[in-house]
Design a protein around this nucleic acid. Sequence first.
DNA 1: GATTGCAATAATATCTGATATTTTTATTTT
DNA 2: AAAATAAAAATATCAGATATTATTGCAATC
Lengths: 217, 217
Amino acid sequence: MAKSLNVVGANTYQRIKRDIIFGDLAPGSKLKLDGLKERYAASMSTLRETLNRLASEGFVAAQDQRGFFVTDVSREDLIEIANLRVLLECHALRLSVANGDTDWEGNLVAAHHKLHLMEQRMQSGDISGKEDWKRYDWEFHQALISACGSKNLLSLHAVLFDKYLRYQMLVLTYRGTEAVLEHKEMFEAALARDQDAAALALQVHVEKGLEHTLQAF
Amino acid sequence: MAKSLNVVGANTYQRIKRDIIFGDLAPGSKLKLDGLKERYAASMSTLRETLNRLASEGFVAAQDQRGFFVTDVSREDLIEIANLRVLLECHALRLSVANGDTDWEGNLVAAHHKLHLMEQRMQSGDISGKEDWKRYDWEFHQALISACGSKNLLSLHAVLFDKYLRYQMLVLTYRGTEAVLEHKEMFEAALARDQDAAALALQVHVEKGLEHTLQAF
DNA sequence: GATTGCAATAATATCTGATATTTTTATTTT
DNA sequence: AAAATAAAAATATCAGATATTATTGCAATC
């Protein structure tokens, strides 16, 4: 997981990653050290550390003597990411539903509530808060699986989620009503401790999202 | 995946990772920059890049202003790793068995053959070649799932495999005959294109290995 | 006009060394 | 022995240097 690590390093890490996910750094584009140095006000050493980290996570690709590039996107990659997300997140969800305690429930209720509020705002066409929406969506999905009991699983999932998110941000269209209902379904199934229903709802949710994103790609 | 990237960097990356996996750098031990500088004959910059990468993969832990440590081991972590490996590798195996072509089969036969030769040598108590055995074991498992069609899946699996391997190397006892049979079972089920049987054999293989390793832990 | 060859330029990978800040260790005081 | 403080070590970050490798631009050739 992203540690705070050190002030400058952690900061540039988060900012570059954010810029990749939100498309401010376009897929495939070259990451020139000098350019980044200016843009993020960090030294070359710090930048290279950051880029190595992002390369290891797959947001950046390092080429043998040619520096760093924003990882490219493709339909195949998107499909792989979505499938892996289904595999890991459904698995985690089942475990979480089976093990979650009262705190987990409380946290989940809160997360869903906040997401729901945001969704209502988005439905009225106001796409300005996409960054906030992203955060609430993430927190909701995170809340769902947080009781799975495997740190390793959660950390793998976090990376996948962000990769998937990048594709969503790329096409920049909001799926609206459907997604809202799907979230509600997952939420209710989880609270009812119905593993199968919850996992199924999640699978449908991701797969519908995949279709939608593929279409706009 | 491990790119060749650049000469010095890629080299130190591989050597440090190897030393962690094979226990030459003990779990929890401090990774002092000065020490590493001598040991791996690389500059601080290069080392920090390497350590950041390894931290991102989870072989190293970075603490806020206190440097880097070899990631600690624990029973819980081992169990998590094994479970994730089952989840990912079984999934990949099914896909691979479904999609594998003639080349895949050929490669698999070769990999199994080489592994089997090595296993016979190991069974006579000769543990000296553990590094080679490790490689053949890796190549066999890799060959099994190589036709799964998902680069993302393969690359996640590779990291998990190495983490699991570290625990095996830590306890340093070879499971012998049983594992040989399990490998054979997987191999034959895969060739027979029996997804269920192959996945089951793999699951048993990993879970037996987990028990064995836990016992010796 | 397109292609090859080569020089000029730019960029990368790596190293050394410096500084401010923070940890750790050692020493002294209570 | 515990707390406070001083000294030493280590980290995070930066700037700048060098060798090597890519890229670009232009001339020579076909």
